[in-house]
């Protein structure tokens, strides 16, 4: 199962990056915490990879955000 994720929009991907920077984490640090490679985090932030729900939850927990805050697409975003 994969997250509801707007692959074409920059908004969802930017939110992950903003949340990560807000927590003062580098891509490498976030990758280590959620158990993936840096490349995978980079791909998610660029909207080139659609993560599984499990990975979405892991990222959300690490960044202390809800799935909504990170992955939900608002009408205004689209």
């Amino acid at each position: 199962m994969q997250c509801i994720f707007d692959m074409d929009g920059e908004h969802v991907n930017n939110r992950i990056k903003i949340a990560r920077v807000g927590k003062s984490l580098t891509q490498v640090q976030l990758a280590k915490k959620v158990g993936v490679t840096r490349q995978t985090i980079g791909l998610i932030e660029k909207g080139q990879y659609n993560p599984s729900l499990q990975l979405c939850i892991s990222i959300a927990k690490t960044l202390e955000k809800t799935l909504d805050e990170l992955f939900w697409e608002d009408q205004n975003d689209g």
């Binding site: 580098t26 891509q27 840096r38 490349q39 980079g42 791909l43 932030e45 660029k46 080139q48």
Partner: peptide
């Protein structure tokens, strides 16, 4: 190839 790809995905 990996280096090029990673550079594109860098912070």
């Amino acid at each position: 190839r990996s280096y090029q790809k990673n550079k594109d995905l860098l912070d």
